[in-house]
């Protein structure tokens, strides 16, 4: 019993686009005087997850062995767990609902789970790995309840992210740099591109502490921002909205994969 082959192919194609965008964002964020305000760890995670998922969906796109991916996503899970833990120290439980790292942690856990939980018999998969996961009724899934919980969480984070796409302040909450010290001149331009600069005149509730121009830098509303001369394509690539779109696409794809694994 299998679904149409174009379905995983389509999701895999979307993941390849996400991987390309994430790679472009990483390239745009190379250190320098005009370093972009991108979350390198998040973009790196997106890149790795997208490559891994495309390989899980379409066997011919497999890159690394499953064991290597398990190590990669184990490290990513630990990395984001630490960051969520730090965030939770300041914001408490709200770090899970409104923080910028919690979705990355859930994504990492979901990836790790998918690699660890699904064991396809070698005889039916034509080899090791999860390339045959689509519709594989012979696969033995461990802890299927966790798959459902993760799918629900991923759906929840996807709609929350989508809700924030219409919010310049919400978009900025995506950026850990807003609560840290990595805000740069180019970053201010990126935020202005995302419509963030309006926070200064927006309603109080739309202006979080993280959104307000802080001592770390940034451009007060109405003031021309540096970096204006950069190519608009580059600004588009580093726009927080694009990263959020990637995260939404990955969340939905992961939820799809988890559900068909069940």
């Amino acid at each position: 019993m299998t679904g149409p082959s174009w379905l995983p192919d389509t999701f895999a194609a979307i993941m390849l686009v996400v991987a390309a965008v994430s790679a472009a964002r990483l390239a745009a964020a190379v250190p320098g005087p005009r370093q972009a305000i991108t979350d390198t760890s998040a973009d790196c995670a997106h890149l790795l997850m997208a490559i891994a998922m495309s390989g899980m969906l379409v066997a011919s796109l497999r890159t690394l062995p499953d064991e290597a991916w398990e190590v990669v996503f184990g490290v990513l899970t630990a990395w984001f767990a630490v960051r969520v833990g730090r965030e939770a120290r300041g914001r408490g439980a709200r770090a899970w609902a409104g923080g910028c790292h919690a979705p990355h942690l859930v994504h990492s856990v979901a990836m790790l789970y998918m690699f660890l939980a699904l064991k396809v018999p070698v005889a039916t998969s034509g080899g090791s790995g999860m390339g045959g996961m689509s519709g594989s009724s012979s696969a033995m899934l461990h802890l299927p309840t966790l798959a459902l919980v993760l799918a629900l969480l991923l759906a929840g984070y996807a709609v929350r992210d989508l809700d924030r796409l219409t919010d310049p302040a919400g978009v900025r909450l995506y950026h850990p740099a807003q609560t840290g010290s990595r805000r740069t001149r180019f970053g201010a331009a990126a935020l202005a591109t995302a419509g963030a600069s309006g926070a200064a005149t927006g309603p109080a509730v739309g202006r979080s502490a993280a959104a307000a121009p802080g001592p770390a830098g940034g451009s007060p509303a109405g003031r021309p921002v540096p970096g204006r001369g950069l190519a608009s394509a580059r600004r588009l690539v580093i726009a927080p909205r694009l990263a959020i779109c990637c995260r939404i696409a990955m969340g939905i794809t992961m939820a799809y994969m988890l559900v068909i694994m069940i």
Partner: peptide, 12 residues
């Protein structure tokens, strides 16, 4: 333009 964007509140 960025300047215009900066003059507006976060809006839809």
């Amino acid at each position: 333009s960025e300047g215009t964007a900066a003059a507006r509140p976060p809006a839809l």
